Every structure is written in C-alpha cells, then in structure tokens.
Amino acid sequence: MTIAITADTLRGLPLPDSGNGSKEARGSALVIAGSVEVPGAAILAGTAALRAGAGKLQMSIAAGTAPHAALAVPEALVVRLPDGEDGHVDHRVAAEVLLPRTERAAAILIGAGMASGEPTRALTAALLTGPAQAPFVLDAASIDGLCAQAEAVRARGGQVVLTPHAGEMARCLGCDRDAVEADPLGAARKAAEILGAVVVMKGAETWIVDPAGETWHYAGGGAGLATSGSGDVLAGLIVGLLARGTTPAAAAAWGVFLHGEAGRRLAQTCGPIGFLARELAGEVPGLMRDVADAVF
C-alpha cells in the first residue's frame, strides 16, 4: 500500500510539541555542507533547518567560506573546517573537529554542496561510525557509493534518511541513471532494503520508502522546484524536523510536503518557474501553521 502525502496524511503524523518554548527543547541541527565552490548549500540547508523549527543551528563549512556563511546566517554557530584540495575539506582533521559536536547534536546533515569523491565518503563513514546518537540526513556527495558501506548505515537502526536524485541514487546503487529514472520506486525500495534507511527518491514526483518497506508518494510541487539549491533546502527541512524529535519517516514526509507546497505557493505568487531556492524556506512556517493540528 502506498500512502499519498497530503495535509490530511500529516494530521496523523503531528509534529512534536515544542515543550516550554525554549530553543533547547526544539533541538540543535548540525549542518555539515558546502564547499569552496558551493558555499551557498550550507546557507540554504541551515536556514531551512531553522525555518522547520530547529531551536539551534551549527553549520560546518570550509574555512575559506565560513566568515561569509556566518554573515549570511547570523543565527548560526559556524565551525570552520580545514580546506583541502579540489574543493574538499581535509577529512581527517574535519572528523576530529566534528565528532565531539555530533555527540551534542539532535540531528545531523552531511553532504549538501560538498565535493564528490573519497574525502567526502571518508568523512561520512567516520561520522556514521562515530559516537553520535542523533539521526542523520545524507544528501548529495555523502550518498555516493554508500551501498558499499551499508553496514555503517544499517548499524544506525533506521535513524538515517537519504535524499538522492536519480544520478545520486545510481551512484549509490552502482547502476545506470536510466535504470533509476525508469523505476524510481524500485530503486528507492532496493536502497532502503540494503541500507536499512528511509529513502527519499526525489524527482518530478517523490517516493519515500522506510526500512520496513512502507511507501509514501508526493505528486510534486511543480516545475519551479527543479532549480539550483532546491534539494539543499529539502535536506535542511528534514534535519530541522529531526532535530525537533520527529521520527525519520515522518520528518521525510513532512519535509517533502513542506518543500513541495512552498513551491506551489511561490508558483502562484511569483510564477511557475523562476522563483529561487532561497525563497522556499520562508513559506514553511506558514505552511506548518496552516496544516490543522500541527504543533509548531
């Protein structure tokens, strides 16, 4: 059975109560993202995490771009990661810096805007096998070749959410992109089974599959969402929801819905294409308010 993701569906998956209203009660999101060439990914994802209701935000980004990110998101604590070669951070030193911070985070995002290659894969593996108890969101470069280190993901006990597009899914599974595009749901099911993770298979329509095989479907928020940085916003929304204490599958469903419906709203006010990824997150608090019975 496939569950359609709608406002009615989400009323059955209410967001956690914000408790006494303190920022600590809504959790700290740790966003490890961006690179020298794509520093904006950390800004987009971090801002989205706050708009989804995370109480605190830490952004870890290459040292050369960290001051700019700190000015762009003054609400965040920004952690400088040592610059390496070809846009990568030095993964060994980065792991030493980040591992203690993962222990204090309520949810962790890795990969948005990071350079593809072995350094990002090695950093992802180091953090997944580290002492953190928090759930992870793996996006973009952190998904490459992930099925080859499935044991590290499975050891997380279903507390990992993947957000691949077709190309990233193909690199994860080691197959052709055409095969993923021909059967995105089948690819999502295969990855969820291998990794024991929640898989958000992005595209014109979005499929979500959890480790038990339960499936959700979102019909899509419009062509305008196919724009640079849109996926970074989605990953940030999911990590923000996880930081609040939302379960991985529910955070994925809420994140996909909020992302898609933000696109619909902007299509109405701005036009069907041409709105910017940076504008999506601003629609999110109102959307959460408008879904009846959602606690924000």
Rank of each mutant, 00 (worst) to 15 (best):
T102G: 11
T124L: 06
T227L: 03
P39M: 11
Q149E: 14
M288G: 00
L71M: 14
E24K: 12
L162D: 07
P82A: 10
V180E: 09
P135D: 12
R177C: 13
L225S: 05
G46Y: 06
L276E: 06
A277M: 10
G157V: 11
R265S: 02
A192Q: 06
L138G: 10
R177Y: 02
G145N: 04
E181N: 09
V161I: 15
S228V: 14
M114P: 13
V233L: 01
A141F: 02
L30H: 12
A243F: 07
T227V: 15
P67L: 13
A106S: 15
A182W: 01
D210A: 12
G231C: 10
I194A: 10
R154K: 14
F257A: 02
M169V: 07
L98A: 12
A76R: 04
A29N: 08
A76T: 08
A72M: 14
A94I: 01
A49M: 05
P119C: 07
A251M: 09
G231E: 12
A191H: 10
L15H: 02
A187Y: 03
L10P: 09
G12E: 11
D8F: 04
A25V: 03
L162K: 09
A292G: 00
R92C: 00
G224N: 07
L234Q: 07
C175L: 12
L234N: 05
I208N: 09
L123Y: 08
A141M: 05
G145H: 10
G229N: 09
V239T: 14
S28T: 14
R51P: 00
M169I: 09
A251I: 05
I108N: 10
A262L: 07
S228Q: 03
G286N: 13
M288D: 01
D139R: 06
G271P: 06
E96R: 14
R177E: 15
L99S: 12
T163R: 04
T120W: 10
I238A: 02
P16L: 11
L138P: 02
T246L: 09
M201H: 01
A292Y: 05
A262D: 02
T2C: 01
A112V: 01
A63M: 00
G117R: 08
E96T: 12
T246P: 01
A267Y: 04
A63I: 00
V93G: 00
A226W: 10
